[in-house]
Structure formats: C-alpha cells, structure tokens
C-alpha cells in the first residue's frame, strides 16, 4: 500500500514539473522579424551614361541613349520601365549602307539579392538580378546592294527604302547599385539579350535593332546608370520583442 502511494505521488510530481516547464517556455519572449517598410518606398529616375561608351567600343557607327524609372517595393522588388532612342549608320565591307533611327521600350522587374540580417539597418547598396521584355518598332534603309554577274557580266545596285520591322526580345539582367550621395545612385548592369521574334527568310532583315544592338539573335549589353531617388526610402521599424501569450490575450 505504501509502495502504491509512492508510485502515484512520484507520477504526479513528474506531471507537475512538465506542466511548469511548458508554462515557462510559453512566457519566453520571441523576436518578431522586422517587416521594415511600407510597400512603396518611392521611385528612382535613372539615365544610362554607359551606352554612349559601349556604342563607341562596339563599332562607333551606332548610338544609344536611354532612361528608366524604377519603383521600390519593400526594398526587395523593383519594377522597371526603360525608354530609349537608338540608331545606326553603318557601311559594310562591300559598301552596303544601313541606316536606322528608332525608339525602344523595356519593362521588367529587378530583385535585390542581398539578404538583410534581423534588426540590421537596410542598406541602399543593392546587388540586383532581373528580367526585361524589350520591344522596338522601327524603319530602316538598306542602300547600294550590288547584284553582279561574274560570268555573264553586268551589275545593278538595289536600294531598299523605308523597310519596317518590329522586334521583341528578353534580357537577363545582373548588376550593382550604390548610393554615392544622399538619394544619388550609381550602378551598372550586364545584360544578356535574346531575340524572341526572328527574321523571316526572304525579307530584308535589319542589321541593327534599336535597344537590342546588332541583329545576331543574342547580344550582350552593358549599362552604367546615374539615378536619383524620390519619395520615402527604407523606413525602418525595429524588431519588437513581444510575449506570445500576451499578444494572444490582447
């Protein structure tokens, strides 16, 4: 009888201990990670100053100039719209001329790949990766296309004037953006461009596509941007230490 009493009392003591420790765990404060900002953290306007340099490096007979507007959503997602003008005035080895001037548009989204530690202040220096869809509708001239006959003799020059083309492509973008002064940003992006709309055999294909570059199917691009940020930026809310049981009772 005495043994039975000892067993039951020891079991009851154990249960009491487990319940007490569980209660202790419930009251331990937990850290709620900061959801630092509101959705819209303003926007930035950027101008590409690198396209002028790359135009010179590539061939010297094409030009490109562009600007972009970029929204800042939660300092993680950056929807982007880019608008530009570009053109080429190129002469081939056989003196065939190509001339175009046109506008282009790109839209897409960048993602900030830098992960922030809990309770650390958000940085304005970004490492970004993203996608773009680009499009251009443009006119061009191909002049002095010489048709010759080496055996029978004779030659005739042909001119293809006011040719029209529409091209769509996608770009994979990787880059860096750094705040050099308050609200003033500098950055660069490398782009891998791939044409979606290919040339139909038999048509007078353009040598250059505004915003895409030479009509090679795939191209590399480089942008060096200078931008200014407007509106609120990185509103930072510190982590709150709250008791879970207190929160639930409220």
């Amino acid at each position: 009888m005495r043994r039975i009493f000892v067993y039951i009392s020891s079991i009851l003591l154990c249960l009491l201990f487990i319940t007490a420790s569980a209660q202790k765990k419930k009251n331990k404060p937990i850290v709620v990670p900061p959801d630092s900002t509101v959705w819209l953290n303003g926007f930035s306007v950027q101008a590409d100053i690198g396209s002028l340099i790359t135009s010179t490096l590539m061939s010297g007979d094409s030009y490109s100039s562009e600007a972009s507007i970029q929204m800042d959503l939660k300092h993680k997602i950056f929807p982007t719209f880019e608008l530009g003008v570009a053109g080429a005035n190129h002469l081939s080895n056989d003196n065939i001329g190509f001339k175009t001037n046109g506008t282009f548009e790109r839209f897409g989204v960048d993602f900030n790949l830098r992960k922030r530690k809990i309770d650390s202040k958000p940085t304005n220096n970004l490492f970004i990766a993203g996608l773009r869809i680009g499009m251009s509708h443009f006119n061009y001239n191909v002049t002095n296309v010489l048709i010759t006959d080496d055996y029978w003799g004779g030659s005739v020059p042909l001119n293809y004037m006011n040719q029209t083309s529409s091209k769509i492509w996608y770009e994979i973008v990787v880059g860096v953006q750094v705040e050099v002064l308050k609200n003033v940003f500098m950055g660069w992006t490398i782009r891998n461009k791939n044409l979606i709309s290919q040339d139909i055999p038999g048509v007078i294909a353009p040598w250059y596509i505004p915003g895409f570059g030479q009509n090679n199917g795939a191209n590399w691009g480089f942008n060096y941007t200078l931008g200014y940020h407007f509106g609120p930026k990185n509103k930072f809310i510190k982590s709150k230490k709250i008791l879970l049981n207190q929160k639930t009772t409220k």
Binding site: S92, F98, L146, I147, Y160, V203, A205, W207
Partner: peptide
C-alpha cells in the same frame, strides 16, 4: 528572284 541575305553577304539571285 533577288534574295537578300544580309548586310555582310549582300544579295544573290
């Protein structure tokens, strides 16, 4: 029939 190839290659018949 004239067939334009490219700026580099020109046109063939």
């Amino acid at each position: 029939l004239n067939d334009y190839l490219s700026l580099e290659c020109g046109c063939i018949v």
